[in-house]
Nucleic acid binder design. Structure first.
Lengths: 203, 203
DNA sequence: AAATATAATAAACACTGTTTAGTAAACAAG
DNA sequence: CTTGTTTACTAAACAGTGTTTATTATATTT
């Protein structure tokens, strides 16, 4: 009875076809400029068909958010090989910011938009947990190396993530208008380095 | 010729009527659950009338975002009287977080949503500039008091704002799902205090 | 009193996410 | 091979959305 298995495979292929189409349009035009009808046109199916494979638009966004985490964790892999734990931490910060600038729509889905989170009924958020795990590991290494004091690892990681995330989110959401255009970039560079130095000498 | 002045006054009253209606509905139900038609019903005018006073929905959101800043700056006033500059800074951080928790929709409009920013063609953002000015002042006081080193004030302020903003935004956008429910609050408390201590001893 | 300018709206336009009812193809049973 | 049934898909509809246009009623000016 290989027939149910083929059906399952075909279903999975269809889900991928839909998600690929959605990804292409979303990342090119932004979330709120792409409709279910646009996606349906892209993959040459009727809009109603999409609802046979995904509960609603939010579930589609959640699936894309998952792909975003796969991509991000991939991009983090190489710098996990760095030997100096503090350098590793700083480079993770840079990688986070770079990922956001290069993939603003994905970043939005992963860390800013409410919509994809509305699908999880509980509060697990596996993807976030995995990514946060990478950070806590590096923070733990910094503590073990005597670079950071022995505070709660999770609280320390949370504090660092907040700093980098705020920096990134304010930039992406165009909230830097009060910094004079000409030296905005240098001020932001200074702010990043200041954060790193402060962690280095004050934690 | 007091007639043009009355007309101008009536126009301003109508703008207020619309904005009050919009505010009431937006703050109660959230931005994307309130339509122009809802607002029109609330104030007992036709939807088209709203467009005679506001260019589009984004302009309405921008006007509300402005009101948010008035409210926030008001709430900041009392703690600007504190004498210890570092204590002042910490309390400003707490006030920022408190404001966000108590007025999530307003905070959204002010610091997270893209829509209200789309109305400003240039990149001035007066409201943000004024609020950021309050922060830079306090940071300057910390530098003058020898609590902080003599780094660039704007970069220092930006770094601090990033930390507090990231903390707040991650909470509001439900990105703390990886912290165990039971001790999430204490971890976040620790993270805030850790940030303050780190600034205190490392900046 | 007639002509003009202003304020407000009903109705339409071009969309949106989602659901329902119905059809054509694939499969299972006799 | 023909039934009956399940599955995959879609056209059409529902109930909205932001926004514009053509029209009417009122207010102001000549």
């Amino acid at each position: 009875m290989g027939i149910t298995e083929r059906k399952e495979r075909e279903r999975e292929e269809m889900r991928k076809l839909i998600l690929d189409g959605a990804q292409k349009l979303f990342l090119a035009n932004g979330y709120d400029k792409v409709s279910i009808r646009n996606i349906a046109d892209e993959i040459e199916y009727s809009p109603a068909t999409i609802y046979l494979y995904y509960k609603d638009k939010n579930e589609l966004l959640y699936a894309l958010h998952q792909r975003g985490f796969v991509k991000m964790v991939q991009e983090f892999q190489p710098l996990l090989l760095l030997t100096d734990p503090f350098e590793k931490l700083v480079e993770m910060g840079r990688a986070y910011i770079r990922f956001a600038v290069e993939n603003p729509e994905l970043f939005d889905l992963m860390f800013i938009m409410m919509a994809p989170m509305d699908t999880l009924d509980k509060e697990d958020w596996m993807e976030g947990d995995q990514a946060f795990g990478l950070l806590t590991q590096v923070v733990q290494e910094c503590i073990d190396a005597g670079i950071f004091q022995k505070h709660n690892v999770q609280a320390t990681a949370m504090m660092i993530w907040s700093g980098i995330h705020g920096y990134t989110a304010l930039y992406l959401r165009k909230r830097l208008g009060m910094l004079p255009e000409c030296d905005r970039e240098s001020i932001m560079d200074d702010a990043f380095n200041l954060f790193c130095e402060t962690l280095r000498h004050g934690l």
